[in-house]
Amino acid sequence: MAGLILRRLLMVVPVLFGVSVIVFLVISLIPGDPARAILGTFATPANIAEVTRQLGLDRPLPVQYIIWVGKLLHGDLGRSYILHKPVAEEVMERLMPTLLLAGTALVLASIAGILLGVVAAVRQNGWQDKLITVTVLIGISTPSFWLGMLLIFWFGVRLEWLPVGGMRELFGGGGALDTARHLVLPAVTLAAVAAAVLVRLTRGAMLEVLRQDYVRTARAKGLTERRVIYVHAFRNALVGVIPVIGLQAGFALGGAVYIETVFQWPGIGRMLVSAISTRDILLVQGGVLVVATAYVLINLLTDLAQGLLDPRLRDA
């Protein structure tokens, strides 16, 4: 296992390097003068000159990159000239709510998706399977932002069961319970699509695994179907499902952009949307970099989880 951890950690390094290059290039791809773009429409020539010098925009690209990475390693992501505060500070403030939302959604989606997927496979062609299949079809065809609006309308406005938005600080005034109440609707909305994908995948993986020779061996030993399905088949199916949970983490982190907008959740997604409309490029850059890094690390975790489950990966 130690070998696997080391190998995966080493693999993360070039990926993070690649991510940083792509994020860095965002600035240089801006048509026209990046300094002007960063400062917005009210930039004075003096401001522009200062930003150009600060970011080294007058130097060759590789040098710019090195300067940028150097600052990055010191936690300096530049300054938002719209919000008048350091990008790193704003991004870090917004990161926790997003991770909480996406993490909760991912856990919900994994539990629901795997559970329903197994049920659908075990009851293949039964009414449970048909019901689940139709629900999944609707799930992957529903725009999450619309689903969010519907939930707000029914549970927030009509039934008044749950708050519909207005979270400002995670653990501010209301305490953890208040946070949890605010979290329910957005997390469920965000989980819906990911769950649908995981149901499909788990169902397919289970059906595939249930045809394997070792399942026949398990049955030939006289083991109960319960043990055949949940010990022999399920574990093997899970090996194929876990990397997709990692993939879904990416969709959840991205989908959070919609959900945070619909539910006015104070996360990075909503920050990014407003930063794009105010053309606050450095803030966009910082936000994308941090979320992408989080995503890379989540995938590292799912890789390791897969290794825990499958001894063949540990030794390979």
């Binding site: 969709f251 991205g254 952009v257 794009i276 994308v288």
Partner: peptide, 20 residues
């Protein structure tokens, strides 16, 4: 691989941010 290291929608947002 590098492109896929980004959460799907986030990369799209970054591109829109650049292009407007």
């Amino acid at each position: 691989d590098m492109l896929m290291a980004f959460p799907y929608l986030l990369l799209a947002l970054a591109i829109v941010a650049v292009l407007g």
